[in-house]
Amino acid sequence: MDNKQLEEFVKSIDQDLEIRNGKQFTEVTLLPSQLYAIAKLLREKEEAQFDFLFNLTGVDYGQDLGVVYHLRSTVHGHSIVLKTRTSDRVNPNIDSVSDLWETANLHEREVYDLLGIKFTNHPDLRRLFLDSSWGFPLRKDYVDDINIVTK
């Protein structure tokens, strides 16, 4: 499917989704509550078959925390981007997709480690690089007077 068809396909799943056709990928913005269900549909539907999660990025948008999923289908060769964001900075919760794509396991641990986003239903959510006394360094409000030198 090309991007147009993808857009229509996603529309057919849920009318209200916010879809943006970027230069490269079709970008779908989801609420955290919708994410798992739609990711599962995209993974399993015959005509979509997004079986390859090639990137999972946690983003701090300043106000919100978000996660970006880059999906590709090794069968059909098309790609799609899912974006989700939550405004809860203290206790951000997003559903884990690690049972759909095994690779999400490590990716989500990394995002948890660096941004503090908790993935519910993750089998093994522990800090990955840093130990538990660290903050979440990729957040924009992270302060570290010793290690971060600003010119």
Binding site: F54, N55, T57, V59, D60, V68, H70, E102, T103, N105, L106, H107, E110, L138
Partner: peptide
Amino acid sequence: YVISDGNKNPFRMKFRSPNFVNLG
């Protein structure tokens, strides 16, 4: 993966490194 806000620095830069994924 770069999210740019139009500045000379990237707003968020993510490297999807092959080894990290392969380690899994």
